[in-house]
Simulated assay, not measured.
Amino acid sequence: MAPIVASGAPSLRDVLAGSVDAVLGRSNALGLPPRRRVVVLVVDGLGWEALAARVGHARTLSAGDRRRIATGAPTTTAAALATLATGVGPGVHGVVAYAALDPARDLVVNQLHGFDPPTAAADRPGLPDGWQRAATQFERAVAEGLAAPGVGPRHYATSGFTREVLRGSTWVGARSIEDRLPAAIGALRAAGRGVAYCYVPELDMAAHRAGWSSEDWTSLLERVDGAVRDAVADLRSGETLLVTADHGMVDVPASAHVVLDDLGLLADVRRLAGEPRLLHVHLSPGADDAAERWAAALGAAADVRTRRQAIDDGWFGTEVDPVVAPRIGDLLVASRGNAAFYATADAPARGMVGQHGAWTPAERFVPLVRFDG
């Protein structure tokens, strides 16, 4: 398998860090000139391949200075946004999956909701303090005297994920897609200099519900493109808008569902984490032949790696902290095509159409589109 991120190539981890550098007048991985204000618009789930397939519905995005970048690993929102926010890989910041094992308690915790205060429900335990281990680019920007607003749906202002992963940003609530870029640009102009993070989750939600090739997803893409068009027309000298995404999408038909229980693969599983297209399998003691058995049972549908192999192959970045390593599965099972893996036939996630998490080009590569004022 090719490296997750090509050596020397800009990737998602460079986008916010490079933007801060540009506002500070420093050289950066993105090649941006000195800027007064940069807005980074993250369109959740907008893959490079999906955008290329819908260019007629996204004429502004298609006409911008556009290049393909890699998201890093894994291609899931919690990990990717943490990588964007911190400028380091999951092996350092510690958010390694959609749902990851907390080794100290032997509990699998959802990484999007786990930063919220724990609930009484067994499926909603909280994450321990310090789980996200890296300083953020927002903190760096504020320390340098820059503004660092974050703009998105209002209810994200009080989320634990915003508090821990987007630490240092000042949240500005904006209900609609059309409201968010003006809010971000306005906040930066009021402050003078800075970098804004602007988030659009709606396309990802539509893809999970109906697929990225659905009319709903395409209609939302048109709205994003219209919002970008209006923002570009309003850009002033010294301002830059960057549009990117955390991951792409694969539509998974029911015929591509693989039920692990039917294959007899759950006997040695202590905890199952990750997500359907990238499983983190935590094994019971003594399951020494598990990698071979899983690889034989899944065949061409999956790449199966031990934790050591996945780390050596750079799945979680160039560095993995010893504290973070036990959060990674004993086995990693990544879909090669459009398959998704479920523990049992009644798994609730089988209702999702659009999915992500693995290393296929459709999931792994996203656009980085630049517009300068």
Results as ranks from 00 to 15, higher is better:
125 P>K: 14
211 G>K: 03
342 Y>R: 06
230 D>M: 10
99 A>N: 06
199 Y>F: 15
202 E>D: 15
32 L>C: 05
136 T>K: 07
167 R>L: 05
274 G>K: 01
3 P>F: 02
93 H>I: 03
318 T>P: 11
312 D>W: 13
166 L>I: 14
315 W>M: 01
147 A>H: 00
90 P>K: 11
173 G>R: 08
367 P>E: 08
41 L>A: 10
47 G>H: 00
131 W>D: 01
326 P>D: 02
272 L>F: 03
109 V>K: 03
337 G>S: 13
85 A>Q: 07
338 N>V: 05
107 L>T: 15
157 A>F: 00
99 A>T: 13
12 L>W: 07
184 A>V: 14
38 V>W: 07
93 H>T: 02
290 A>E: 02
206 A>I: 11
210 A>H: 13
157 A>K: 01
153 P>A: 13
85 A>V: 12
71 T>V: 15
246 D>C: 05
254 A>F: 02
235 L>F: 01
167 R>F: 03
279 L>R: 01
105 R>D: 11
335 S>T: 09
40 V>W: 01
136 T>I: 08
235 L>Y: 06
324 V>W: 04
133 R>M: 06
128 P>D: 10
193 R>H: 08
153 P>H: 12
192 G>P: 02
166 L>V: 12
153 P>T: 15
272 L>V: 01
165 V>D: 12
209 R>H: 14
319 E>N: 10
197 Y>W: 12
338 N>Q: 07
200 V>G: 06
358 A>P: 00
145 G>W: 10
115 F>E: 04
271 R>Q: 08
243 V>C: 05
21 D>F: 08
121 A>R: 15
190 A>Q: 15
102 D>V: 14
247 H>V: 01
366 V>G: 03
72 G>Y: 05
162 T>L: 12
196 A>G: 06
236 R>T: 01
70 A>E: 07
354 G>M: 04
118 P>T: 06
350 R>V: 13
6 A>G: 07
46 L>F: 00
300 A>R: 07
348 P>F: 02
338 N>K: 04
235 L>N: 07
274 G>N: 00
168 G>L: 14
221 L>M: 00
233 A>F: 08
278 L>Y: 02
232 V>K: 10
262 D>P: 10
16 L>P: 04
85 A>H: 06
357 G>L: 09
351 G>E: 09
154 R>W: 13
221 L>H: 02
163 R>L: 11
343 A>R: 00
173 G>C: 07
83 T>W: 01
43 V>R: 02
307 R>K: 07
248 G>M: 10
231 A>Q: 03
292 E>N: 08
173 G>E: 10
171 W>S: 03
304 V>L: 04
75 T>V: 03
127 L>E: 12
143 A>L: 12
14 D>M: 11
60 T>P: 05
215 E>A: 15
259 V>I: 05
235 L>G: 05
125 P>E: 12
116 D>F: 09
153 P>K: 15
137 Q>C: 14
41 L>K: 05
15 V>D: 04
66 R>P: 11
325 A>P: 11
284 S>D: 09
78 A>N: 03
99 A>M: 09
19 S>C: 06
136 T>W: 09
171 W>I: 02
371 F>C: 13
335 S>K: 03
27 S>Y: 05
136 T>R: 05
183 A>S: 00
118 P>D: 13
74 P>K: 05
319 E>K: 13
341 F>H: 00
172 V>S: 02
61 L>I: 02
1 M>V: 08
288 D>Y: 07
13 R>G: 12
317 G>P: 12
166 L>C: 10
